[in-house]
């Protein structure tokens, strides 16, 4: 499949498309935690790195089949998400942000000293088995499941926690439980994205998963619109392509990221698509009844 597609697409764009797919999976995970449930996580790269190293170590050192390794990486990330979220999600939002930063830093320092992962030198020789087809099949599955989840009772309750925690409790929502769930699912997708990333880049180092990577992922969610699936996808696409297109001004990329966050928060705190709903668009174009109203 990849061979056929790559005949028609320039290798450079092919690479960007794969990276876009991986970033969509990562960002949709973060969107569940931060965009939908409103719990600011700034250590998503930590989960990514857990998934990347776990799956890579399994395929390289233990010759585990790729799919099993990928799943194992995602599960390990989810397990850490669960263990970290359980005690900390009872805390107020700002503390969670710090805990997640701290967690990601600890993970990074751990892998800097971890022999089987090549320590600071990095981990090379990972089989390059992540394909375009695989990434985009997974992207479609993840989008579909996300969509179903967010339009279910559980998803609505997650939005409700973001909007008003006390009112959510008064509606019978066990807020801690759902926050932990969102966090765990987010970590799972982080781990999945990490595994795909490792087996595409075939070389990883702890520096790939530093604080700036977490911020980049957060930016994708915030730029597109917190809690919105189309928004998060758009954010991932823009922020994957932009630095590639703006290679000349690569040095200024982070300056731009920083300013972007401030400007967005002041002028468009809900992101590009955060408060655009398909219902409103449909209403503008037709007078017919529409059924779904989730953004």
């Amino acid at each position: 499949m990849d061979a056929i597609i790559s005949q028609y697409i320039d290798a450079y764009y092919f690479r960007i498309l794969i990276l876009i797919g991986i970033n969509i999976i990562l960002a949709l995970g973060l969107n569940l935690t931060t965009g939908v449930t409103g719990q600011l996580s700034m250590g998503h790269a930590g989960f990514m790195s857990l998934g990347a190293y776990t799956s890579a170590i399994l395929t390289v050192h233990f010759a585990v089949p790729f799919f099993a390794a990928l799943l194992a990486g995602a599960l390990v990330a989810a397990l850490f998400g669960f263990l970290l979220g359980l005690p900390t999600l009872r805390l107020e939002g700002d503390y969670l942000a710090m805990v997640t930063i701290g967690f990601a830093e600890i993970v990074r320092v751990f892998f800097l000293n971890f022999e089987p992962g090549g320590k600071a030198v990095g981990f090379s020789g990972i089989p390059q088995v992540t394909t375009f087809t695989l990434v985009w099949i997974l992207v479609i599955i993840v989008i579909y499941l996300n969509y179903k989840l967010l339009n279910s009772r559980t998803g609505r309750a997650m939005y409700a926690i973001r909007e008003n925690e006390i009112a959510a409790e008064a509606s019978g929502v066990n807020t801690t439980q759902l926050k932990v769930l969102a966090f765990t699912l987010g970590a799972f997708l982080g781990g999945l994205g990490g595994g795909l990333f490792a087996h595409y880049m075939f070389f990883i180092e702890p520096g790939n998963f530093g604080f700036m990577k977490s911020i980049e992922l957060l930016n994708m969610v915030v730029l597109g619109g917190m809690g919105s699936i189309p928004g998060t996808i758009l954010g991932s696409i823009i922020l994957t392509i932009a630095p590639e297109m703006l290679r000349i001004v690569q040095d200024y990329r982070l300056l731009f990221y920083g300013a972007l966050l401030v400007i967005l928060m002041i002028f468009r705190p809900n992101g590009l698509l955060g408060d655009v709903r398909f219902y409103d668009i449909k209403k503008r174009f037709s007078r017919k009844e529409v059924k779904s109203c989730q953004s």
């Binding site: 300056l255 920083g258 401030v262 967005l264 928060m265």
Partner: peptide
Amino acid sequence: LISAIGVSIF
């Protein structure tokens, strides 16, 4: 908080 992170990076 996100705005503050933006300033920090900037």
